[in-house]
Amino acid sequence: MEPLLDISGLDARYGQAQILRGISLSVGRGEVLALMGRNGAGKSTTMKAVMGLVPPSGGTIRFDGRRIDGREAFEIARLGIGYVPEDRRVFSELTVMENLSVGQRPPRQGAPHWTPERLFALFPNLAAMRDRPGGAMSGGEQQMLTIARTLMGNPRLLLLDEPSEGLAPVIVQAMARTILALKGEGLSILLSEQNLHFAGSVADRAAIIEKGEIRFDGTMAALKADAALRAQYLSV
């Protein structure tokens, strides 16, 4: 069966600097793939390129068999890809409910259908603050809201950019449970991560990116077993 997301030979550049060099990756249906690497290795740029926020300068990106490279972000979102940026970017002046309503899209075949009530069941903290402005929430709550907002679009594939970044360990554990719950709903997930411990607890497969190139692509178990590989690329 063909993968849900299939990236092949992806290049991207900012001005003169080439950030991605021939990235090839795929995410299978119902699979969680962790894209690992240091700050500045190209993780976020890969996510943004898939989402149409950074124009690829070469290569192809297919989603469910359809070419999506070169399309605009809103079209890609409508096809069923949800993007959760690393810096959260909740609409700080909008309430929790309003934040959710911005992300709302019609139900989609082959994807779980989300309503605010279902999301509040998944993120109980949010239920108590429906009318609170996004700006008046803690970092962990904002991270939950960003994910919930994206889920309102009923995506088939979720792009999570460094979901554990800067969160207290307790929240990170809750985040891992959430991701596993989403996987249980049948969602496919591509997440970028520096924290191997966290990635290891949620991902089926891992890929390592360094200086814009893929250096490893295999199962999470294989990465955990290879101390030399981790020492070389993950500086943990």
Partner: peptide, 19 residues
């Protein structure tokens, strides 16, 4: 709501599927 959201972060609004 969309206008207010776009006033703050128009790129994010696009990434959530709004034309």
């Amino acid at each position: 709501t969309l206008v207010r959201a776009a006033t703050q972060d128009r790129e994010m609004v696009g990434a959530l599927g709004v034309d």
